[in-house]
Amino acid sequence: MKNWMFLFMAIIAEVIATSALKSSEGFTKPIASMVVVVGYIIAFYCLSLTLKTIPVGIAYAIWSGLGIVLISAVAWIVFDQKLDVWGIVGITLIMAGVLILNLLSKTSAH
């Protein structure tokens, strides 16, 4: 169970870091730039802990899939970057893929 918590922490850290990457304006804003660096360090460290028990393909699929969904939500709310219908369809398909991998696939380490 704690490995899934590490994966969740990796996803949250990556979302924070990626959001700050937009705010860093090409690493010209020092505070936002530090959030990017620290966030990615935390994200990759937590992801590495996750990989002790969760297969890399599953962990990465969940990490990147949920990261895409959450970053899209943050971009919509914080940066006013709206998705069109096809963008929403794509995000929905990504979420479906993550759910299928996690709930139905025997590849996942439960």
Results as ranks from 00 to 15, higher is better:
49 L>C: 12
20 A>C: 03
68 I>N: 11
33 S>W: 01
46 C>R: 10
57 G>W: 01
62 I>H: 03
48 S>R: 05
70 L>W: 03
69 V>E: 05
4 W>Y: 14
42 I>L: 12
107 T>S: 15
2 K>C: 13
51 L>N: 03
76 W>G: 00
14 E>F: 02
6 F>N: 02
2 K>H: 15
55 P>D: 04
3 N>Y: 15
31 I>A: 12
81 Q>L: 06
32 A>D: 14
45 Y>G: 12
24 S>D: 06
31 I>P: 08
12 I>C: 14
5 M>P: 07
49 L>R: 11
106 K>M: 13
89 V>H: 04
53 T>N: 12
37 V>W: 02
25 E>H: 14
63 W>H: 05
71 I>G: 09
94 I>K: 06
18 T>Q: 07
37 V>C: 10
22 K>T: 03
15 V>T: 07
85 V>P: 10
38 V>F: 12
33 S>V: 00
16 I>K: 09
37 V>F: 09
75 A>Q: 02
4 W>T: 05
67 G>S: 11
80 D>C: 02
90 G>S: 09
85 V>C: 10
46 C>E: 00
109 A>P: 04
56 V>R: 11
101 L>V: 08
1 M>R: 15
109 A>I: 04
45 Y>E: 13
39 G>T: 00
44 F>G: 14
17 A>P: 13
16 I>W: 06
81 Q>R: 11
83 L>Y: 08
50 T>L: 05
98 V>W: 00
50 T>M: 06
15 V>G: 15
54 I>R: 00
1 M>D: 09
100 I>H: 07
36 V>S: 09
103 L>S: 12
30 P>Q: 05
67 G>Y: 02
40 Y>C: 02
77 I>Y: 14
25 E>Q: 12
51 L>E: 05
73 A>G: 13
6 F>D: 05
70 L>P: 09
47 L>K: 03
7 L>D: 01
7 L>C: 06
15 V>Y: 01
28 T>Y: 13
27 F>G: 10
71 I>N: 12
12 I>L: 13
59 A>D: 02
37 V>P: 11
76 W>T: 00
61 A>V: 03
55 P>W: 00
20 A>K: 01
30 P>S: 08
52 K>Y: 12
78 V>A: 11
24 S>T: 03
60 Y>V: 03
23 S>V: 07
13 A>Y: 03
88 I>A: 11
25 E>C: 07
90 G>T: 09
53 T>L: 08
35 V>W: 01
43 A>D: 07
103 L>A: 12
66 L>P: 01
45 Y>L: 15
84 D>A: 09
6 F>V: 00
97 G>W: 00
57 G>F: 05
45 Y>Q: 07
54 I>E: 00
103 L>V: 11
26 G>R: 06
10 A>H: 06
40 Y>G: 04
39 G>R: 02
79 F>M: 00
110 H>C: 06
85 V>A: 14
63 W>L: 05
59 A>G: 08
38 V>R: 06
